[in-house]
Design a protein around this nucleic acid. Structure first.
Length: 472
RNA sequence: UCCCUGGUAGCUCAAUCGGCAGAGCGGGUGGCUGUUAACCACUAGGUUGGCGGUUCGAGUCCGUCCCGGGGAGCCA
């Protein structure tokens, strides 16, 4: 055993073994080198048990430390401490684990004072852990979430790559000051005491010489590339400055936005359903232990619901039929359902959680409640839009076929009071080789909420940004 | 932003009608045991979110502010 700071120099050329490898080894690995953090420690007569976790998997590796090899500082090898272990990988004689490591050398790399280290050997509330977001990945639940998030993100790229979609990086900074409704975060290099010398052009002296914001969507730019590369997708951060205080909204979140040419609403729904299912399948296959934790401690019906989601086709109904179902339900909804009004949260939840009890795609919404770029249907009353509503979360995906006909698009922009000059490039695409195209946006955090059963978006993103919260 | 609800030990919570502020877990110390959220004993730990008010007396009632949670709205 070596004191702090004396650590790795004398190490042999032994390659590092990760906990996951040690636990899943087909046979004894012999001498191994491990590094990680101590989750718990149990003392016995003459020796101690350490539970070591290094993030490679949910489970911990049991390390047996004979007090003969432990030094004076072994008292500080406690919950939270960072350590290096060199020892013998061997079958465990006791129940609970197949493999364990008998330490020959323990090095304390970084201690954690037990009186002030916030994480204890017990379950903590999500609210408490949010306050220590820098330490919560050291818990089983948030470590599992991080691994699931990573695997799901990998799957997104794998999915699109396998279907001929090119990954497109759309800008984070945008110059549009009217990307539709919604508050945007303003970006500026001007000082807080700056007063414009040219009131007519208040941004004249700013970095870009015009108003700059953080993007609320990469869709418009993705459309431009879809009309050149045929199939593209974006997967990046998105920003909304709404003062929303709900478990489903964050000021910064990640969105997946495929966009493809020569396709319509049907293909969009097919793609959204396939993507959702394959992402679920991928996480089930690659993070079974992590996912099981959520099925066990967060939501008992989670695993069964995911199986249902994979097994059955998603329901697909036109908006008009959704309204009929809601009216016929005779539910005492707080908001009455009438054709032409947007579906409220209570309506969306009723459809997916109670009526169909599975994901539902509602399509062909009234034109009056949807944005200008959605393609007008033949009836002149509805647009080719679709929302994917899922249990637990509500709207997971929103998409549409885009209006590729210049004259109709211009009419729609006028109807919604948009400045056509600001969108000259968007309109140009309809002037030169315009083609039918479509796409959708999937909220990545909402997907994670659905697949883990976690009810608050603040707990599926490492460092959540919500109104009044910018710590870490 | 609106409505509801909460803030008591490091964490999770209790405290009857306004009447001595407590428990479990965690921490420390000692003991015991191939242990599994180990176990046993002892021990330390409090401006009851802040400020103001009512009262002989406030964790408890009133006002106000701060913070959390739930619901709704906002939301490409």
């Amino acid at each position: 055993m070596h004191p702090p700071g004396h650590s790795t120099r004398r190490r042999t050329m032994l390659r590092r073994t990760f906990v996951k490898q040690a636990l899943t080894a087909p046979g004894a690995l012999g001498e191994v080198l491990l590094r990680g953090w101590v989750r718990t420690r149990r003392d016995a007569k003459g020796f101690s048990f350490l539970e070591l976790n290094d993030g490679s998997c949910l489970k911990n590796l049991q390390v047996v430390v004979d007090h003969a090899v432990a030094g004076w500082f072994f008292k500080d090898v406690n919950t939270g401490a960072a350590v290096e272990i060199q020892g013998e990988h061997a079958a465990s004689p006791a129940a609970g684990q197949a493999w364990e490591v008998h330490a020959a050398r323990v090095t304390l790399i970084g201690m954690a004072d037990q009186e002030t280290y916030p994480l204890q050997k017990k379950r903590h509330s999500d609210e408490f852990l949010r306050g220590i977001a820098h330490l919560r990945p050291r818990t089983n639940k948030y470590g599992a979430m991080a691994r699931i998030r990573s695997e799901a993100a990998f799957c997104v790229h794998d999915f699109f790559r396998g279907r001929g979609f090119w990954h497109l990086h759309t800008p984070i900074l945008t110059g549009s000051d009217c990307e539709g409704a919604g508050e945007m975060f303003r970006v500026t290099t001007l000082g807080t005491n700056y007063h414009p010398r040219t009131p007519d052009e208040p941004f004249f002296e700013d970095f870009f010489g015009r108003q700059a914001n953080l993007t609320v969507s990469g869709q418009l730019e993705a459309e431009l590339y879809a009309c050149a590369l045929d199939r593209v997708y974006t997967f990046g951060p998105t920003f909304r400055a709404e003062n929303s205080n709900t478990p489903r909204h964050a000021a910064e979140f990640w969105m997946i936005e495929p966009e493809f040419a020569f396709g319509g609403l049907r293909e969009t729904m097919d793609l959204a359903e396939e993507l959702t299912k394959i992402m679920v399948r991928h996480v089930l296959d690659h993070c079974p232990d992590d996912l099981e934790l959520f099925g066990k401690y967060v939501d008992k019906t989670l695993m069964a619901d995911l199986e249902t989601l994979l097994r059955e086709p998603f329901e697909r109904i036109p908006y008009r039929q959704a309204v009929d179902i809601l009216e016929a339900s005779k539910r005492g909804f707080e908001f009455q359902v009438v054709f032409g009004s947007d579906l409220q949260t209570e309506h969306e939840r009723f459809l997916s959680e109670e009526y169909f009890k599975k994901p539902v795609m509602v399509y062909d919404y009234p034109r009056t409640i949807k944005p200008f770029y959605m393609r007008m249907n033949e009836d002149g009353e509805t647009v080719a839009a679709m929302d994917l509503l899922v249990p637990r979360v509500g709207e997971l995906v929103g998409g549409s076929q885009r209006e590729e006909r210049l004259n109709i698009l211009v009419d729609r922009m006028e109807e919604q009071g948009l400045n056509q000059e600001a969108y000259w490039w968007y309109l140009d695409i309809r002037r030169f080789g315009s083609a039918p195209h479509a796409g959708f946006g999937m909220g990545f955090e909402r997907f994670l909420m659905m697949i883990t059963g976690v009810a608050n978006i603040r707990d599926v993103i490492p460092f959540p940004r919500t109104p009044g919260n910018l710590e870490f």
